[in-house]
Simulated assay, not measured.
Amino acid sequence: MDTGQRESILIIEDEKKISEIVRAYLEKEGYRVKQAETGGQALKFLKETVDLVVLDLMLPDIQGEDLCRIIRESSDVPVIILTAKSGEEDRIKGLGIGADDYVVKPFSPRELVARVKAQLRRAGRTKKKLLSYNAGALRIDVSNREVFRDGMVVILTPTEYKILLSLAEQPGWVFSREQLVTFAQGFDFEGYDRTIDAHVKNLRHKIEKDSREPEFIKTVYGVGYKFTGIPDAD
Score class of each variant (00 low, 15 high):
M1E: 13
D2M: 12
Q5H: 12
I11G: 01
I12A: 09
I12Q: 05
E13K: 10
E13Y: 10
K16L: 13
S19T: 11
R23K: 14
R23V: 03
R23F: 01
Y25L: 07
E27C: 02
K28T: 01
E29W: 01
G30S: 09
G30W: 04
Y31N: 01
V33P: 03
V33A: 01
V33D: 00
Q35T: 10
A36Y: 06
A36L: 02
A36S: 01
T38C: 09
G39W: 09
G39F: 07
G40T: 15
Q41C: 00
K44T: 14
K44R: 15
F45S: 03
K47M: 13
T49Q: 12
V50N: 08
V50E: 01
V50C: 12
V50Y: 10
L52Y: 04
L52S: 04
V54T: 14
L55K: 00
L55Q: 02
L57N: 02
D61L: 13
Q63A: 14
Q63N: 14
Q63L: 12
E65V: 15
C68S: 02
R69V: 05
R69D: 09
R69G: 04
I70H: 10
E73F: 05
S74W: 05
S75T: 03
D76K: 14
P78E: 04
I81S: 08
T83H: 01
T83P: 00
T83C: 06
A84G: 11
A84M: 06
A84S: 10
G87V: 06
L95Q: 00
I97P: 10
G98S: 08
D100E: 12
K105S: 05
F107K: 02
F107M: 04
P109I: 08
L112E: 05
A114T: 11
K117T: 06
Q119R: 11
L120W: 06
R121Q: 10
T126A: 08
K127N: 07
K128E: 12
L130G: 03
L131E: 04
Y133W: 06
A135P: 00
A135H: 08
R139P: 05
R139I: 12
I140S: 02
D141Q: 03
S143D: 13
V147W: 03
V147C: 03
V147L: 04
D150W: 07
G151W: 02
V153Y: 10
V154W: 07
I155T: 15
I155D: 15
T157E: 07
T157Q: 05
P158E: 03
T159H: 03
K162R: 15
I163N: 03
S166H: 00
Q170A: 02
P171S: 12
W173L: 15
V174F: 05
R177T: 13
E178G: 08
E178M: 11
E178I: 03
Q179V: 04
T182C: 11
T182D: 15
F183Y: 10
F183S: 08
A184Y: 01
G186I: 01
F187T: 11
D188P: 02
F189A: 12
F189V: 14
F189H: 12
G191H: 09
G191A: 09
D193W: 14
R194P: 00
A198C: 06
V200H: 04
V200C: 02
N202E: 12
R204S: 09
H205M: 13
K206C: 04
I207S: 05
D210W: 00
D210T: 07
R212G: 10
I217K: 10
I217A: 07
I217S: 04
Y221W: 15
T228W: 14
G229C: 12
G229R: 07
P231N: 11
